[in-house]
């Protein structure tokens, strides 16, 4: 791009945080364009993964970046820009699915208030599931559970970041995560280890 400030500058690549600050200071759209180009493929891929429809994912990507643009001044830098952007992405997609399916709340509190009946699942049990199988399992659990698992294990978000992103308490997220892991493992056992008992 001819007017791309990143091209003009021969120095090291600017960090996301620098680009946000530069944009807020100068209001030069080229800085936001750089952020868009850095993350649009990742956001688009996440949207496809959650929405399972390319057309809807395109609309979602567009809406997410416009939302990010209008809220850029509110980005507090308590977390990384990518963490914040992915939170917006998951929230948007989950909300979209909720509206489409007319579900009351995909991140329902009903589960959070229920007594804790599930056993803690060791992370390694989940992380070592074959990629193809993992894909199938993630498509079979509720989208809210899938989003929490992806935030934690794919995007390395902390419990605090997930809680902030989804506007829930940290303890609610811990519980949600525990149950999501359990559900994923149940699906895995059901599909691939029919003889085993969980």
């Amino acid at each position: 791009m001819p007017g791309d400030p990143e091209r003009k500058k021969s120095g090291p690549k600017r960090s996301d945080s620098e680009l946000v600050q530069l944009y807020l200071r100068t209001r030069e759209s080229a800085y936001f364009t750089m952020l868009y180009r850095r993350y649009s493929t990742k956001v688009f891929s996440k949207c496809i993964s959650l929405l399972r429809d390319e057309g809807q994912a395109q609309d979602a990507t567009q809406d997410i970046f416009i939302k990010v643009y209008t809220n850029l001044a509110k980005f507090s830098e308590r977390s990384k820009f990518s963490t914040w952007l992915y939170s917006v992405t998951y929230n948007y997609c989950i909300d979209y699915i909720r509206r489409k399916k007319k579900l009351k709340n995909v991140f329902s509190d009903e589960m959070e208030s229920a007594p804790d009946m599930v056993e803690e699942v060791d992370d390694s049990e989940l992380l070592e599931i074959e990629v193809e199988r993992l894909k199938v399992i993630l498509d079979r659990i509720p989208p809210g559970d899938k989003a929490v698992l992806l935030m934690k294990y794919q995007d390395d978000m902390s419990i605090r970041d997930i809680a902030e992103g989804l506007d829930k308490t940290e303890s609610a997220i811990k519980m949600k995560l525990k149950r999501a892991k359990h559900k994923a493992l149940l699906v895995y056992e059901g599909l691939y280890k029919k003889n085993s008992v969980l």
């Binding site: 992380l127 070592e128 993992l134 294990y153």
Partner: peptide, 11 residues
């Protein structure tokens, strides 16, 4: 440790 969530993301 292996993290196949990351591999899935890459794929």
């Amino acid at each position: 440790p292996t993290n196949n969530f990351k591999k899935l993301m890459e794929e």
